[in-house]
């Protein structure tokens, strides 16, 4: 077990290096730089440009810039945003809880709805319920997420007025945020109605961001369930006269969940990609929106740092999923 984990960890290191290189190259290859943005319609004088280039370290050859950057990264220094001169760490952690909170609620929503729907659909294969769940799941899976978000806003916020349009909490509430999770902080604040407001702001983004994972989980659970139910031991259990409830919940479910866990783990990447669009549309002050804005401003340190941290999060989650999976299903350790 330990050797498996260590082997996986060893693979992470080159990946991490690769990510720094890719992140660095990507942002530096995009034409136009932070100074062009600064100048706007007016433009920047050559003297000021030269000074700024030197100050931002952009006057050095690219490979030197990269070495300096990697060196700093390994000392835990991600640099300073060219926009507001704040450390990238600080900028990232000011926004990360918002993305994390939304991602967690979205994946929970997807699991809570998708898992039972998938199980029932699998057990009642071919029923009307099965068909409608699978139809809905496939539709959700095929949905252009930005369009979906706009439709939801238009319908639930604008037409019906049920949910707020955007943001994390009504601006009338203002309290300390020790955790950065609005749901927890609003409870801790003790302000009346704050929690409710936080919840109502979360609903639409959660549904939009959770739609694709929900569809994937429901479909995966169903097919995994069908496969397991057709296995010999289940048939044996049934033949022995065990109650269908017991067969499904105790025997089949445990085995059916193995691939589902992997799928949930893999959704983390999808969530972060979805978060870019979802956050942009719902004015959610998270990492996705920050990345888009930083690319638009050519804020190199922020983009590099952000990509690096997001990638690290994905790598860590994948590692955890792999390890979990190998615990549940020991065969995998020897297979790979």
């Amino acid at each position: 077990m330990l050797s498996f984990v260590l082997r996986r960890l060893a693979l992470v290191i080159p990946t991490f290096f690769g990510v720094t290189l890719v992140a660095f190259l990507l942002v530096h290859l995009i034409p136009g730089d932070a100074i062009d943005v600064l100048g706007g319609e007016r433009g920047v004088s050559p003297e000021l440009r030269a000074r700024l280039m030197a100050e931002l370290g952009l006057d050095k050859p690219l490979w030197q810039q990269y070495l300096i950057y990697v060196g700093n990264v390994f000392q835990g220094d991600l640099g300073i945003s060219t926009l507001n001169r704040k450390p990238v760490w600080e900028e990232f952690f000011a926004r990360f809880p918002a993305t994390l909170e939304l991602s967690i609620t979205a994946i929970l929503f997807a699991i809570i709805v998708g898992l039972p729907a998938g199980i029932i659909a699998g057990v009642r294969r071919g029923s009307a319920f099965d068909h409608s769940v699978m139809g809905a799941a496939l539709t959700g899976y095929s949905m252009p997420i930005f369009w979906w978000a706009l439709l939801m806003i238009f319908f639930f916020s604008v037409t019906l007025g049920w949910t707020p349009v955007s943001g994390r909490i009504s601006v009338i509430y203002f309290f300390d945020q020790p955790t950065g999770f609005m749901l927890i902080d609003s409870l801790l604040s003790g302000e009346k109605g704050a929690f409710r407001s936080a919840v109502s702001h979360l609903i639409l983004p959660t549904i939009v961001l959770g739609t694709i994972p929900l569809a994937v989980i429901a479909r995966m659970t169903r097919s995994s369930m069908i496969e397991v139910l057709s296995d010999d031991y289940i048939r044996t259990a049934r033949a022995k006269g065990l109650s269908p409830f017991l067969v499904v919940n105790v025997h089949a479910l445990r085995n059916a969940l193995i691939p589902v866990i992997t799928v949930i783990g893999l959704q983390v990447g999808t969530l972060l990609a979805g978060a870019i669009l979802t956050e942009t549309i719902f004015s959610w002050p998270g990492i996705g929106r920050w990345m888009i804005e930083s690319i638009g401003r050519r804020d190199y340190p922020s983009v590099q740092g952000g990509i690096l941290l997001i990638a690290s999060a994905v790598i860590i989650v994948n590692l955890v999923v792999d390890v979990l999976y190998s615990i549940i299903n020991p065969r995998i350790r020897y297979a790979s």
Partner: peptide, 15 residues
């Protein structure tokens, strides 16, 4: 609130 349609929606909602 970066999105202009969202800003209008917020305004209508009294936000």
């Amino acid at each position: 609130t970066p999105d202009s349609s969202v800003r209008f929606a917020k305004m209508q909602a009294g936000e």
